[in-house]
């Protein structure tokens, strides 16, 4: 059964929405009624059929429209995609990973034929049929990382590993939660995490780095992160803050359900075989409050999480301006009954 790709927008008229089936598969990130940072990393193994974890690289109904939005961002700002000179090999690694994963998981939509270095890639949803020589830059219209990530949902950071640290030396970042590749390029793991509150004191980054530098080939790992976004805008970058920042002042009790979105990032970590670099896909999932409250459990739990969130975290995630309005709106869906453990809708 193929995916029914939606035609929708993440800007201007914001026609993005989730189908009922996609609401049910949303990766709700709270397993209990409160939230604090933790090193919540687990093996990236296959999850239940139909979930966003069923396949190692998830493709969903928003695929075609998300790729159109990425092309618009890149046309306006080419610096959203950068690769330092030593990262080209890692780009080929990533191209192989994404092509093989997609072709294996979604044969009705993607196919890859390999004859030595002669590769033939077909991407039916985007109407692409490309023959190229693996490793030969002259045979693709873009560098290998840009080529394949223009066809892959989510942002991608490729981290070089050396001197016991990870370095943000390549990436494509167009669907980010208020951080900038152009600012972070070339930084190490501690440098680019410097703005995050509370977690440094808890020693989280030291432990996370130790874990990540030991991620091995064939054993990817994952974690969920979250924030909130006003309007279903994928590109909430610092570069475009003037476009989306003011949206946060537009939330009213009447429009919470349509305007406020929970934004969940499925982050995964993969060792790349030729370059020994680490690739860090950050896949963004959006859900409107009106969609989320169709699950009574999620509604009750989100109300409690947002209501009780420590002030520093609320500020860091940019919720301050509309938090009270949102909590009041969500309170209507919280009758005080207990929520069952786990992430599922019920």
């Amino acid at each position: 059964m193929g995916i029914n790709f939606r035609t929708e927008t993440f800007r201007d008229d914001f026609s993005f929405r989730n189908s009922p089936e996609h609401i049910r598969r949303f990766p709700f990130p709270f397993h209990e009624d409160s939230y604090m940072y933790a090193v919540n990393i687990e093996p990236h193994v296959a999850g239940p059929a139909g979930s966003v974890l069923e396949h190692p690289i998830d493709v969903d109904e928003h695929y075609v429209s998300e790729m159109a939005d990425r092309a618009l961002v890149l046309a306006e700002d080419p610096l959203r995609c950068q690769s330092l000179p030593h990262m080209t090999l890692a780009g080929w690694d990533l191209l192989e990973l994404l092509m093989t994963a997609k072709a294996e998981s979604y044969p009705e939509h993607f196919s890859l034929t390999r004859d030595g270095d002669r590769w033939h890639w077909i991407n039916r949803p985007l109407g692409i049929d490309q023959k190229f020589l693996f490793g030969d830059l002259t045979t693709l219209p873009y560098g290998p990382m840009e080529y394949i990530t223009r066809q892959s949902q989510g942002d991608f950071c490729i981290l070089d590993q050396r001197d016991g640290n990870l370095w943000m030396d390549a990436g494509i970042v167009t669907t980010q939660a208020d951080w900038s590749l152009d600012f972070d390029i070339g930084m190490n793991f501690f440098e680019w995490h410097a703005p995050v509150p509370l977690a440094h004191e808890k020693g989280i980054f030291t432990r996370a780095l130790k874990f990540l530098t030991n991620v091995q080939q064939g054993k990817p790992a994952r974690r969920l992160n979250w924030t909130m976004t006003i309007n279903p805008r994928l590109d909430t970058s610092p570069e475009n803050y003037h476009k989306w920042g003011p949206d946060r002042a537009t939330v009213t009790p009447e429009n919470v359900g349509q305007k406020v979105h929970l934004r969940v990032e499925l982050q995964s970590f993969w060792r790349l075989p030729r370059s020994n670099a680490l690739v860090f896909p950050i896949r963004c999932y959006l859900i409107k409050m009106d969609e989320l409250v169709t699950s009574p459990k999620w509604a009750r739990r989100l109300h409690r999480v947002i209501r009780d969130l420590p002030e520093e975290l609320a500020t860091y995630k940019g919720l301050t301006r509309y938090r009270a309005t949102l909590v009041e709106w969500l309170a209507r869906y919280d009758d005080g009954t207990p929520t069952s453990p786990g992430f599922g809708p019920e």
């Binding site: 330092l84 000179p85 030593h86 990262m87 090999l89 070089d160 590993q161 050396r162 091995q216 080939q217 064939g218 054993k219 075989p273 370059s275 020994n276």
Partner: peptide
């Protein structure tokens, strides 16, 4: 085992 690289080239 799967290959593990603790003696990687610095591609810079």
């Amino acid at each position: 085992s799967y290959p593990v690289n603790l003696f990687s080239l610095d591609l810079r």
